[in-house]
Structure formats: C-alpha cells, structure tokens
Design a protein around this nucleic acid. Structure first.
Length: 418
DNA sequence: TGACGTCAAGATCCG
DNA sequence: CGGATCTTGACGTCA
C-alpha cells in the first residue's frame, strides 16, 4: 500500500510552483518559470524519497499554460535531461506519480472548442509522464464533465470524445466520481464500457451518491475490477470534510482516528490511497507513520522537532503533554502522539502563547543578532502586544533572521509554515 | 452575472 | 523602498 499527497510540499524550501499571467507569458518568461518549476519538482521528489512517500500527484502547474497556444516551448526537449533524471529517481524508489487536470478540463463538453482544448490538456499532462519515462501505472485522473440537461447524451459524448484521445493518453487515463454530477455508479458504468480504470473518491461519494445505497467498501470493490495488470494497483482518493465549512471542503489536516477506522475497514494492502488535504505532505507522513509496523521512536522525535514551536504557540499545556509522552522510549504510540498534536493544532492560542513561542525562536539569535536587530525584534513584539500589528510581522522578521543566520533546526521547523 | 476552487501574480496601500 | 494586504487571473458549468 502506498499513501500519497497532491501537488504541494509544505515546510520545505525551493519546492514552489511559479506562474504568470497570460499577458506576461513571453517565451523567455515561460522558459525561466519552467526551469524553476522542474527544479522544484526535483526537490519534492527528493523529499518524498527521504520520507518514504511512494505516491505523489505532480502539479498541473508544472508547465505554465502547458496546453495553450501561447506556450510554444518544447520543454520536453529543452529540459529532457533534468526530466529524465527525475524520472529515474521515481522509478528507482518505486514511487507512483500521477496528474489531475482540474474541473475546467471537460472532455464531454457540448462545445467542440472546449472538448478539443480538453484533449490538448490531457495530451499535455500525458507528455509529462511520458517524458519522465514512467510506465502506464502512472495515471492522469479526469472527471466525466457536465450534464447539459441530458446525462445520457452527455455520457455518450464522453465516449465519442474519448475516441479523440491518442493511445498514449488512453493508456494513462483514469476517471473519478465527482461531488456534483457523476456519481460512482455512473462513472463505473462508463469505466466498464470503455475499459477505463475508476477512482473512488470517498468525500465526493458522501455528497453525490447513487440511488442504491451501498457501503464504501462495496464501491471500492466494484472499482477494483476496472484496474488491469498494466494499470497497477487500484487507486482511491481519500479526504475528510472540513468542519463548519461547505460540503466537500477538504479538512486542514487528516484526523488520524478517522483515517485509521477507514484503513482498518479497507483491510487491504494492494491499494494506493491519495490524500486530499490542506496540509498535504504533513498528513501524509502522519498516516504513513501510523500504519507502519514497528515504527522507530526517532521518527516521532523528528516529527516533534518540526511541530514543537507551532504547538508551543497554540497551547503550552499540550506542548508539555507531548514532551511527557515522548519520554517513554519503549512503549509509545504514534497514534497517541498525533492525537495530541491534532489537539494542539486545533488550539487557538493567545497573545501570551504567541509571544512565548516568538521568544523561544528569538533565543536562537540573541548571541548573534546585531543591536539593531534586537531593537527591531522587541519593537515588533511590543507592537504586537499593543495590537498595532499582527503576529505575522514578528514571525516574518524571525524568518528573515533564521535565513540570515542559517539556523538549520529552525529552517526545518513548521513554525513559519502552518 | 456570479459562484465555484485554487493560490500565486499583480496591484495597491502603508509606514 | 520594502513589506503587508487586498484583488485579479485562468479555466467551464450551472443556477
């Protein structure tokens, strides 16, 4: 089993995707952005390898305007060496990667231009995977599209337009149930008819389900049959509803208890789970750690070193509780650790705890910082306490000092990221 | 015509 | 001038 995350890496440097507006999209600008983004992708793949993450969705933003007329760059040639190098790392580490065009790629559109653009968009996505040199287990995920007041005709049009796809795209295409229009039963029908693997998305299913109400396990089992040998293990999407937000919104982090219940019910190893969650790699590492047998306590200690100042900022009590928990090196539970962590992350904190955490961070610099920096820091802190500025002003200044004085421990901290 | 979703770019404001 | 904060962009469908 692989557990993965989508598109974005939180808490690491040089892993961002850059873009530009259409009117600034000159060839020079685009080349510069593509170089930057491929370099960021390389950082993300390295991170995944270091953290034992074997499932990853590459951002569609890798190549800005990747399927548009404005982008005439043959990036797969210009950067062939860099891309091949990344592909080799993916293969060597048995990582599985995918791509997922968003809600605006509509293959079954009743507008011919839109459908043709969708084909081009899928060709672009496929080209990324082909350039990496990875096999057909590495997929491109697509929703079915619109209903246009006639689902039967719209499904037929999906089948018609599917024929427009080149073979290399067809080999990688998989389809997914969405939260508004095509439920899992309908997507399965299409998948079986056209021989396209189907991804079950649990949260979409919760809000858009077929008349015949069956368990998640049932639908997951039905989808399994659509995955052929050359497609690799069945893949599903898993996410949790954000509390007090509109239906379908992804949660800030994965609640580990809820995930473990899902995982136990699944009771399978021949399946890959793509998490869709705001905190991306962070929840991914959490779920991997909690499903790893005989986890080394060092892993949790490393996790704690990243989270500790964020927790200190929000709840001193929970900060102390976690330190207590980690004292027992023999009998420890990753799930108990993450439960405390989640409680800490949910805590609001107050100005006292924010100041306390900022002072802890400051202590890394007090022997190096210049007199002027010291004055600046305490001025920002006073402004915050007098409600003349937000805590971010203080934190941004500390971030600047962290980079200037190269404090590696802090550079790896999530204090500046979440 | 606006909402939907995403989030960096781009614009503007502030000290 | 630099940093913080607000607005726009880019996509297609649907109410």
């Amino acid at each position: 089993m692989r557990i993965g995350y989508a598109c974005k890496l939180i808490g690491a440097a040089n892993a961002d995707m850059k873009s530009c507006t259409l009117k600034n999209a000159s060839s020079e600008k685009l080349t510069e952005l593509i170089r930057h983004n491929i370099n960021s992708l390389n950082t993300m793949i390295d991170y995944n390898i270091e953290n034992n993450i074997k499932l990853f969705r590459i951002s569609s933003d890798l190549i800005p305007f990747g399927s548009s007329e404005v982008n005439k760059i043959k990036w797969w040639e210009t950067f062939s060496e860099e891309i091949r190098c990344i592909g080799n790392k993916i293969k060597k580490s048995s990582m599985r990667v995918s791509l997922h065009p968003g809600q605006y790629t509509v293959l079954n559109s009743n507008n011919k231009d839109v459908a043709i653009k969708a084909v081009e968009e899928l060709v672009y996505h496929t080209r990324i995977l082909d350039s990496l040199g990875v096999n057909s287990q590495h997929k491109v995920v697509l929703h079915i599209g619109g209903a246009y007041d006639n689902k039967r005709l719209s499904v037929e049009r999906f089948a018609e337009n599917y024929k427009l796809l080149p073979d290399n795209v067809k080999k990688r295409l998989v389809i997914e149930n969405d939260d508004k229009i095509y439920n899992i039963e309908e997507v399965l029908d299409i998948g079986l008819k056209l021989s396209i693997p189907v991804i079950f998305d649990n949260l979409h299913h919760q809000i858009n389900y077929p008349k015949q109400k069956m368990s998640h396990a049932y639908w997951i089992e039905q989808c399994k049959a659509t995955w052929k040998n050359e497609d690799g293990n069945q893949k599903i999407h898993y996410s949790q509803q954000a509390e007090q937000k509109k239906k379908g919104s992804h949660s800030d982090f994965i609640s580990i208890n809820q995930f473990m219940r899902f995982y136990e019910l699944l009771g399978r190893n021949d399946i890959d789970i793509m998490l869709e969650v705001k905190d991306k790699n962070l929840s991914c590492v959490k779920c991997i750690n909690c499903t790893t047998k005989k986890l080394n306590i060092n892993v949790l200690e490393k996790e704690w070193s990243k989270y500790k100042y964020t927790i200190l900022e929000r709840s001193n009590a929970i900060y102390q509780e976690i330190i207590e928990l980690l004292k027992d090196k023999q009998n420890f539970s990753a799930i108990a650790f993450y439960n405390l962590l989640e409680r800490g992350l949910k805590s609001e904190g107050d100005s006292g705890s924010f100041v306390n955490a900022a002072l802890h961070i400051w202590s890394y610099f007090e022997n190096y910082a210049t007199e002027k920096e010291k004055i600046n820091f305490f001025k920002y802190l006073e402004n915050y306490q007098n409600q003349k500025t937000g805590i971010n002003t203080v934190k941004n200044y500390l971030k600047k000092l962290t980079e200037k004085y190269v404090q590696n421990y802090l550079m790896n901290s999530l204090y500046f990221s979440i």
